[in-house]
Amino acid sequence: MRRISTTGAADPADSPEFGVRPGEATFPLPASPDAGVYFIGRLRTPWTHRRDCPKNGRESEAVCTVELDPALAPALEGLEGTTHLWLLYWMDCAPRDLVVQVPRSYGKGRGTFALRSPARPNPIAMSAVRLIGIDGNRLAVVGLDCLDGTPLLDIKPYFASTDSHPEAVVGWHRDRGAG
């Protein structure tokens, strides 16, 4: 599978998996990025093609592996007994120039920032995952929705006291069933 560079230089229309759908709109990418990031590891999942990947992390019970750079293993200290984590990752195969997208499951155009799609100017994704175990620089987790080899940006503990907002609403999602 072709990887889109972190500069966004590749044309997503070149990829049959990530081409622009009818009704979608793109914008020109800047010539250079404003900042840099360090990939701190890789996510190992059973999915190698977009079509096989779950739409969100709650659709799968697959046990996946977080491979942290061995030099960063000491940063895992204190996670023992933690049940859930936030993983932030770089969706390196996703197009970066879409401003309007037409999700397959909804068939109507939505602005990129109204969606959780990996296609966005900065393809940063996040999943709240269940931590199954820690072995050195490897974490076993459940709840990922990305392709095998996806670069990892950060790991943060999930705090139910501050990270959960049961009253949260996405208007178009709530209203999609209404007449």
Rank of each mutant, 00 (worst) to 15 (best):
W90I: 15
G23N: 13
T6Y: 14
R58M: 11
C64G: 02
A10C: 08
P166G: 09
E59F: 02
G8E: 03
L29T: 12
P95F: 10
H173P: 00
A71F: 07
S5H: 07
L153C: 07
I40P: 03
M1C: 02
T26P: 15
M91P: 06
P12A: 11
A13P: 05
G111Q: 05
S117N: 08
T112C: 12
F159R: 05
A140R: 14
P95T: 06
I155N: 03
T150M: 01
R21Y: 03
A94M: 10
S127A: 14
T7Y: 01
F39S: 15
P95I: 15
A168G: 03
L76M: 11
S15K: 14
L72T: 11
L131Y: 01
P22Q: 10
G78C: 13
P95G: 15
A13S: 10
L88V: 11
A114L: 09
L115G: 04
E77K: 05
D34K: 01
G179N: 08
R51F: 04
L76W: 12
A140C: 06
W172Y: 03
K55C: 04
D92P: 09
I124D: 08
E59C: 06
R42M: 04
H165F: 08
C53S: 07
A75F: 05
R2S: 00
G41Q: 05
R2W: 00
D97Y: 09
D148T: 10
N56L: 00
V66C: 14
L98F: 09
D97R: 08
L115Y: 01
I134H: 02
G133T: 09
P74N: 07
V170W: 02
Y106Q: 04
R116T: 13
D175E: 15
R96L: 09
G36R: 09
V66R: 06
G19Y: 11
D14S: 15
L87N: 09
D97H: 13
D14H: 10
G81C: 12
G179P: 15
A125N: 05
F18R: 15
L88R: 11
A13Y: 09
N137H: 13
L131P: 03
D145I: 06
S127I: 04
A73N: 04
D69G: 03
L115K: 07
P22V: 01
W90F: 15
L115S: 05
T162V: 14
D11E: 12
I124W: 01
D52V: 00
L88C: 06
A75D: 12
M1Q: 05
K55G: 02
A94H: 10
R96D: 09
L153M: 12
R96Q: 12
F27L: 00
A71L: 12
R58H: 08
E24W: 07
S5V: 06
R116S: 10
S15W: 11
G8Q: 06
P74K: 01
D148P: 02
G41F: 01
K108R: 13
P70A: 05
R104I: 08
D135G: 02
T26S: 14
A25E: 14
D145V: 08
A13Q: 14
D52C: 00
F27S: 06
L147H: 01
R176A: 14
F113V: 03
V170A: 15
